[in-house]
Structures are given as C-alpha cells and as structure tokens.
Design a protein around this nucleic acid. Sequence first.
DNA 1: GGATATTTGACAGTATACTGTCGATTATCG
DNA 2: CGATAATCGACAGTATACTGTCAAATATCC
Lengths: 177, 177
Amino acid sequence: MHLPQGSLPTATLVRRVVKQRIETMQLRDLHSKPGHLIRRAQQIAVAIFMEECADYDLTPVQYAALVAVLENPGTDATRLSALIAFDRSTLGNVLERLEARKLVTRYPSPDDKRVKLLKISAAGKTLVVRAQDAVNRAQDRILAPLKPADRRALMRLLSELVELNNDVSRAPLRGAD
Amino acid sequence: MHLPQGSLPTATLVRRVVKQRIETMQLRDLHSKPGHLIRRAQQIAVAIFMEECADYDLTPVQYAALVAVLENPGTDATRLSALIAFDRSTLGNVLERLEARKLVTRYPSPDDKRVKLLKISAAGKTLVVRAQDAVNRAQDRILAPLKPADRRALMRLLSELVELNNDVSRAPLRGAD
DNA sequence: GGATATTTGACAGTATACTGTCGATTATCG
DNA sequence: CGATAATCGACAGTATACTGTCAAATATCC
C-alpha cells in the first residue's frame, strides 16, 4: 500500500486511496480501537468463565450476584446493583433466575413496602463455595498468555480506567469498599 | 483484618474469618478480577459510544459491520464474522437490521446457492463517513482519563490479550491483516 | 400537612452474544 | 461416482444490558 515516492498514480487511484485513508476508518484501525479490543476481551473472558464453570451452570453475572448477596444479606436489588455495578433492570432478571433455582430468596421488607430483601440460600452458598476453584481458574486463564508483569500492569490500568470512568455507565459502582 | 500473631480470638471469630477468607470470594476480590474489570470496561465503552453516536443511531457492532462491508464488498456473512470477530448467529441479526434500514444490501451469490453476498449502500457509506468523527471522539473519551503513556500501554496489553486468547472465543478473528 | 420529588420493583422494547439445531448445498475422499 | 464431511443461512432458546415507562410507596420541602 505504500505508494512509491516518485510514481504518479492515476487520478482514480488517488481518489480511492484518499477515501480509504481519510474519509473512513479501515478494518485495521478498528481492530486497534479501545472499544473493539474491550469487546473482544469481554467475549473471551465470558467464554473462559463459562467453560470453567460449566458444571455449576453459572454465568459471571450470576456468580457476582451470589457473592454480593452472601456478603450483604438483607439488601435490596437496587443497592445490590450499585455494589456490583450492574444495571438495575438487568439485575431483576438475574435475581429472578437465581430465585427460580432456589439459590436466593426474596422477601418483603418490614420497613418499606416497595422493597424486597435478598438472602442467599444454603444451596446458593454451597454452590458459591464449590464453584470457587473454577472461578479462580477462569480468572487465571484469562491472563495466562501474558507475562506476569504484564498481567499486573493490565489489571492496574483496567482498574484505573473503570474507576475514572465510573460515572459514565448507567450502573456505576457505589458503596463497595 | 490482620490478626495479631500473639492473640487468641474466639472460636466463632475464627470460623467467620476462615469462611470469608478461604471458602468464598469477597466483593473486594471480585472487583479486582480480570473478568469483572473487563465487563465494566465494556459497559463503559458501549455507553460512551452510544452517547457520541446518538445522532446516527449506530451501535458499536453495527458500525464495525458497516466498516467491514465497505472494505470487503461481496463477502458473505460467515467470512464477515471472522473479519470482525463476531459470532455468526449474532451477525445475522445485525445484518438484518442494517438491511431493514437500507444501509446494506444482501443478494444471492451466483456461485454458491447457500450464500448471500453483502454490499454497503450509498446511504450506508454516507452514514459511515458522517459518523467518523463521533466514533473517534468516543474512542478518545474511553481512554481520556488515563495518562497518555498509560493509554498506549493499555492498548498494547489488550491487543496482546485478545490476540493470544483469540481461539478461545466462538468468534475468533481470521483473515484480517 | 399537603404538594412534589424520589425511589422501588416491574415491565416492554431493543440489541448483543452464545448454544444448539435444521435443511439445503457444497466439498471431499475413497 | 457416491457416501460422507463441512459449510451456509436461518431459527429457537437463553442470558446479559440498556432505554424508557409505570404505579405504588416513601421522602422532602414549603
């Protein structure tokens, strides 16, 4: 694609090159854009998680919700969504599925008639404990191809990115830590 | 949380600490796991993209598909999915919407009766050109809170991560570059 | 105390993303 | 050539993720 300095390409060729180079993005550019790289990283991370946790029939989001409910018994769905940076609408469906599998129970709050409070069940707790190793394996596998120093660097940079952009998402993290 | 070496805590306290520390992950741990950080980064990246591109009614995936079709006229959906690392099933729905908006046309291949070939329409091309600035603004905004050196480092690490983990996903990148 | 604003869960609608399956078609290999 | 493989688009099913809306309930302000 490098045009030799001395050559004089035809007008059509010039126009085509200008179009590709200036007016629109090329595929090669796209693959180096942050949004595209993050999307692919997410695809990979989810695939690895699902593979490792196949025995437990748990998605990443379901696992995070279970851990959060285990650590914060008696919270409502809205507060929970802020604890794990989920969208509130989405979390409703997630909790519905967890409740249907009897991993979590929902009961009305005595203080606020709008609110339903959450508790993890014994089965839910057992599942979290049993899935622990698989989850850790998945997290390790995601970073495995990188050199140890690069793993730490990536985690630091992603933490920074997510923290500094926290308010952009509809589901900002609040109240944890 | 660090138990002093010389102290002898009660049995209940020991059991509770052991449960939290060894048996199950804590929320704090979860927030530093690669899967969780990548998921939040993806939420943020999509939110910023949608905000910047609201005028053009384009999602990140739709934009990528349009760019890829523009650069590879006459490919089929399966080859396209490999070019941008999409799932083949998902891409079918995306193309359906783009076709309904007349941004892309699908026509049968003369060589293979199974295949439908893709071309971007004039309107599709115009939209890609017009959205260009907004897309670049979005990509810049995602990394904006980081120091310039950190932006480059993050892009390098993410590129490495997705490249080395390419085969894990159902939608590995193939044929681009 | 009463109008107003906010919060909560729920819902409808849209879009990505994956699994698995299907029939039709094409390619491959014995 | 003919059985078998592989591939293609399409579809059903499930799960995340967002927008926007709604009614009920609660909180706040004048």
